[in-house]
Design a protein around this nucleic acid. Structure first.
Lengths: 333, 333
DNA sequence: TTAAGTTATGCTCAGGATAAGTATAAGCCA
DNA sequence: TGGCTTATACTTATCCTGAGCATAACTTAA
């Protein structure tokens, strides 16, 4: 059946010759299992939360069912039943299928399809074991809202430097350190909040993460941050990275907000996600000139300081234009 | 979007209570099959090509194998064997698992994991049925390098208008037309080259695409553009959209270029992908000020007009900095 | 009642990025 | 040599962005 050329031919990862999508599981060896993993995000009081299970040690996940029209609609239905709130925005994250990913060598024939979903924190369904956990519990080094967190300089930097030094050759040592410096913003490089996954993977590679060492690790050399089952923390990192990138060119923050909000609340939500502060006046200017929000006419009650106007998301923008950024010097002729 | 109700809860799409990733195929009903689909892109003489099989009617695809360490490395090995060229850049595209996706109702328990890969067109392995096809054969309306293609005004616009008009209510009619206008840039809106997938899906919904009507369609009302098996054209649209977005913030074009090239060749490649022209002088300024390229010292031979300097990609940039764009009014304090 | 603290909101300003165009250089070929 | 083509340098106007100042509108504690 497999006709691909050369030596990798014997097993043919991709079967060029055969007509596609007609392979009806020729051998049962090809039957695998799939499950879904969800990164469900909410922001409450300026803190980003994710839904967790297993005593905050895992993301909600479960076996794949073909009941629904699509994965997306299935996930949506499930979350709505769980939280009682409509799942505003759903987006596929990544499909993980690397061998040995789970640490469970015997059953590698599994695929995880992960999704990112945005909701609001509210009561979670009755008997559920689920709860909302702050996402910075899992990634303490990602919160730069009050400046670089102390553990960066105190713990991460020296340990990453030690890891770099432990490389066999001088060239490799430099390479490792440069990678660390770029992803973590050492040596007065800029902190790039989008590199969540790269940072996690670097720490993993440097064996500073419990998941990387499992049984064998001596906790003393590890880095703070709550671990998760299997590769769930990596999936979470993927989700955070995606969301941090997305809020910059798509109006998705609003999925995390109540119907009415002040501009400061909106700003705090953005800052919570991005893990860093934004310039207040400029943020407000951006919102207004892009016409993303409109005044409700009401005024926030119960506040310190001057009361703020309440705004709502202008859903119309979604219909009016396709929001997207460009960076090529396109010519308009 | 249809919102499924709560009754789906009975079977728990996601199994919150159970510990994750320990589901060892409780019932064989959960065993599914997976396959890979690859969107392999090359640019030759300023034309974007994709690798196809089945007489240009399908993307390379095949059953999933767990032989390799990861999906990615498996794909890479396969492509290198096929083309004789290293696969420069690989990125996961999307996992399709919607029911009824293939039109084959009997075996819906299949998942397709798709990848985007960038190479260069060269000899394809001997016995292979694979060949490179221009991607605008499949999406003629996407090529705006010589202005909006005539078929847009001549065919697409009237048929989409008819489709809009055929909606039951006036509100729906307006909504449909507005969607069409945004995605296709009607009524002096800007053409947004990134909306490849949205445009395809709109045409699909309007039943202007052969894949949407299958057996039942009368070709007269369809729209030009070569169809593909199953949902391969949708996957291709996903790939094109992703690539068009990516070239704007990541230096991936270089994966499609030979080792040495002139700035005009580079520009032509970008234009081929984006489907529109860029401003020559500004493009060149961008390349230089970002230090993405460096002169080789050599000069292009065999040219009309003044000979151009040859450049090469400065691979060092990848190590020096993490290229990424930001659009939030971040405060630097 | 007043001063101090807090948040909201309007406005300015400088520097940089962007889009576009002008001008000149350097090759080819008839 | 003149005309065609492409390469490359420079200029200009405009817009965007980051940053800061100033003032308004409240609350709270002295």
């Amino acid at each position: 059946m497999a006709i691909a050329s050369r030596d990798c031919n014997r097993n043919g990862l991709l079967d060029v010759a055969g007509p596609p999508r007609k392979t009806k599981t020729p051998s049962s060896a090809r039957a695998i299992t799939a499950d879904l993993v969800a990164v469900l995000v909410a922001v409450t009081d300026g803190e980003p939360k994710i839904m967790t299970i297993a005593n905050a040690g895992a993301l909600p996940s479960g076996p794949f069912e073909f009941k629904h029209r699509s994965l997306q609609s299935g996930l949506r239905a499930w979350v709505e039943a769980q939280t009682g709130h409509p799942l505003g925005y759903v987006e596929q994250l990544y499909t993980f299928a690397d061998r040995g990913r789970t640490g469970d060598a015997q059953s590698p024939h599994s695929v995880s399809i992960s999704y990112l979903g945005l909701t609001r924190e509210d009561q979670i369904g009755e008997g559920a074991e689920a709860l909302w956990s702050g996402w910075y519990d899992y990634f303490p080094w990602e919160d730069h809202r009050e400046g670089p967190p102390p553990l960066l300089a105190k713990l991460l930097t020296p340990r990453l430097r030690a890891w770099a030094k432990s490389a066999p050759s001088a060239a490799l040592q430099r390479e490792r350190w440069q990678r660390a410096a770029i992803t973590f913003g050492f040596e007065d490089r800029e902190w790039n909040e989008e590199l969540v996954l790269q940072r996690y993977e670097l720490l993993f590679e440097a064996a500073l993460i419990p998941e990387a060492v499992r049984e064998s690790g001596n906790a003393a050399t590890l880095v703070p941050g709550r671990p998760m089952t299997a590769d769930h923390r990596r999936i979470l990192a993927t989700g955070i990275a995606r969301l941090r990138a997305k809020i910059k060119y798509r109006p998705v923050v609003f999925e995390l907000m109540p119907a009415e909000f002040t501009l400061l609340q909106l700003q705090r939500s953005v800052e919570a996600l991005a893990g860093r502060l934004v310039h207040k006046q400029n943020f407000r200017r951006l919102m207004e000139q892009q016409q993303l929000v409109e005044e409700t006419g009401a005024i926030a009650a119960d506040t310190v300081g001057r009361p703020a106007k309440l705004f709502r998301f202008r859903h119309a923008v979604l219909a009016e234009r396709a929001v997207a950024g460009t960076k090529l010097p396109l010519s308009r002729t």
